[in-house]
Each structure stands twice: as structure tokens, then as C-alpha cells.
Design a protein around this nucleic acid. Structure first.
Length: 301
DNA sequence: CCAATTAGATAGCTTACGTCA
DNA sequence: ACTGACGTAAGCTATCTAATT
């Protein structure tokens, strides 16, 4: 019964694509398919984007629901008279009534929906604990409704002005300070999640670049080996079979050449000049002086 | 308000133990 | 008496998150 997944908690998904693939987002075969939609629609490192899917919120609410709040029992609800009396209590969480139930999973696990009585029992005990003046920090759990309302509010604006804070606190039956803290923590969670997403994105980018670099290095190595290989000279078509147009400097094989290395001309034998309008001069692709740039370019084409 | 941290709550897993066929 | 399947409870760990500093 694993309801939540850490990755989905904030409703963020990853969508990565290499630069070469950005023009075809529909490609599903790419190994780099993370769905980074939220951050990609905003500046790359905008940590406080608000574009979150509702899934995360639903999950969150479900988890809260399955964890501790059963059958609509709102253990955090303040008595009406204590709302807005923010600073009076010395206890950090006067609303909490289910603390110290931890470790007693028998109450929660075996019930399968029939354990409310037991929970209520334990709550009664805990309430009496609180009345003992226990100073230990108690922690409330927000109810499903409270969480949903807070999430909705966060979706609209991830910060609160004092007026909004008060209104929300009143609506939720929480102290304004609790609402404030919730928003702070919520922002922190969003930021953390976005950081994770960004980190993953950069990691993938780095991997891509490393692969690309490795590939290019290998290619360079092969080309160098090719250039230095005497055998290659032997297999090469005699330089005289390659011709270059002096005007456009394009190289092509004579029309008669057929197979073998010479059949793969340095440049595709596409007609660049009409018939005999250009002169052909012998061309040795390996005798290019300045760094052989031309030959590399030619080979590549 | 943010960042870092603390600590309570809870889910999942493992293990030991008892019961029963 | 022994064995394997099954259920239960307790301990432990990881994670989430309210609250504090």
C-alpha cells in the first residue's frame, strides 16, 4: 500500500532532451526523456515556479489521509475560542493530539478501517498527557482538508501577506504562525525539488557532452590514423583521378570511377557546373598544406 | 524571509514467536 | 513430535514534515 512516491511528491516530472532533439519533442525513444516541463517553461533556474501538477497535491492529501486522519476526525482543529490566540500557549503545538502514538502500529495497521475506536482511545490518553504539562515538542499533522486548502493557496501565491495569513489561519483553524511556517516549509520543499530536477538535468547534460566528446576524440583518432597509414595511400585512387574545379574548388571523382575507395569521392558527385564549363586539375587530398582543413571538410561532406 | 536543523509521525521491512493443519 | 504456512507484534530504518533556531 505504498501511496506516495518521493519523486512525485511535488508533482514535478523530468523531461530532458539533448540539444539535437529539442526540435522533435515527440520522440519517445530518447533515453533522455525526463519531463522538465515546469522549469523549462520558465528561466532555467527559477526555483519558485508555481506550475505544479495537481497530482502531487492529490498524493499529498491521500497520504495525509491514510496516515493519521481517519474518518474526518480533525485532530488539529483548535477549539473556536483559541483561534487567533497565537502567543498565549507555551506549548508549541497545542493542536496536536496524536503525538506519542508512534511505534504502536498495531493500532493503525491491523484495523483496516476499523481502528477508529482505538485511535480515539489513544487520543484521549494523549490529551491527558498534554494536560500533564508535558513540555516536549508536539507535532500536529494537518488534516486532508487543511493540506488541500494550503496547497491551493500556495498554488495561487507562494507567499502570504499578513492579511492573507490571518484569513487563512482563521479558515483553517490554525495559528497564523503555523500557516506562516507551513508556507516557509512548502517553499523550501519546492526549492529542494527544483534543485534536484536541475541537478539531474545538468547531470544528463554532462553525460551527453562526455559521450559526444568521447565520440569526437575517437573520430579524430581514426582520421589521424587514416591519414598516416601507408596502406591507405596504396588503396587510394591515384591522385590524378581526383579532380578539382579551380574556380569553385570542389573535388570530385571522374565519372568513370566505380568502386573501391575511389568510388566514395571526397565530395558527392553532384553537378556543380554544367558539363565542360570548368577545368579539372589533379588534386591530392593528402597534400594539403595548412593543417589539412580542406581535406577534413571535404571528407566530412 | 531563508537556511539549517530538530524531532515527531508514519510506512515498509525484517524477525521472532505462537498457532494450526 | 516434527514441519511448513500463516498471522501478529515488535524493532529498526527511511522518509516526510511541523516546528525551532
Amino acid at each position: 500500500m505504498m501511496i506516495h512516491q518521493r519523486e512525485d511528491h511535488l508533482g514535478l516530472s523530468l523531461s530532458l532532451s539533448s540539444p539535437a532533439e529539442t526540435h522533435r519533442p515527440s520522440s519517445s525513444s530518447s533515453p533522455l526523456q525526463l519531463n522538465l516541463a515546469p522549469s523549462m517553461t520558465s528561466p532555467p533556474f527559477n526555483l519558485f515556479h508555481k506550475k505544479e501538477t495537481s497530482d502531487g497535491f492529490v498524493l499529498d492529501a491521500c497520504r495525509v489521509e491514510t496516515r493519521s486522519f481517519l474518518k474526518g476526525i480533525d485532530v488539529n482543529r483548535l477549539p473556536a475560542t483559541t483561534v487567533d490566540m497565537e502567543e498565549e500557549a507555551g506549548v508549541s503545538s497545542p493542536n496536536s493530539t496524536i503525538s506519542s502514538v508512534s511505534g504502536k502500529r498495531s493500532l493503525e495497521r491491523s484495523e483496516n478501517g476499523h481502528g477508529d475506536d482505538l485511535l480515539d482511545c489513544s487520543r484521549g490518553l494523549i490529551n491527558s498527557d498534554e494536560e500533564d504539562g508535558d513540555n516536549s515538542r508536539k507535532k500536529l499533522r494537518l488534516s486532508k482538508d487543511q493540506s488541500a486548502i494550503l496547497e491551493d493557496s500556495f498554488k495561487e501565491h507562494n507567499t502570504l501577506n499578513p492579511k492573507q495569513k490571518l484569513a487563512l489561519a482563521k479558515r483553517l483553524g490554525l495559528r497564523p504562525r503555523q500557516v506562516e511556517v507551513w508556507f516557509q516549509n512548502r517553499r523550501a520543499r519546492t526549492k529542494l525539488k527544483q534543485t534536484e530536477v536541475d541537478c539531474e538535468f545538468l547531470k544528463r547534460c554532462c553525460e551527453n557532452l562526455t559521450d559526444e566528446n568521447r565520440r569526437l576524440m575517437k573520430e579524430v583518432q581514426e582520421l589521424r590514423a587514416l591519414k598516416l597509414s601507408p596502406q591507405f595511400y596504396m588503396q587510394m585512387t591515384p591522385p590524378t583521378t581526383l579532380t578539382m574545379c579551380p574556380s569553385c574548388e570542389r573535388v570530385s571523382a571522374p565519372p568513370s570511377s566505380s568502386t573501391g575507395p575511389s568510388s566514395t569521392p571526397v565530395e558527392a558527385p553532384r553537378p556543380h557546373h554544367s558539363g565542360s564549363s570548368h577545368h579539372r586539375v589533379p588534386f591530392n587530398p593528402w597534400a594539403i598544406a595548412p593543417a589539412g582543413h580542406r581535406s577534413f571538410d571535404a571528407v566530412r561532406h
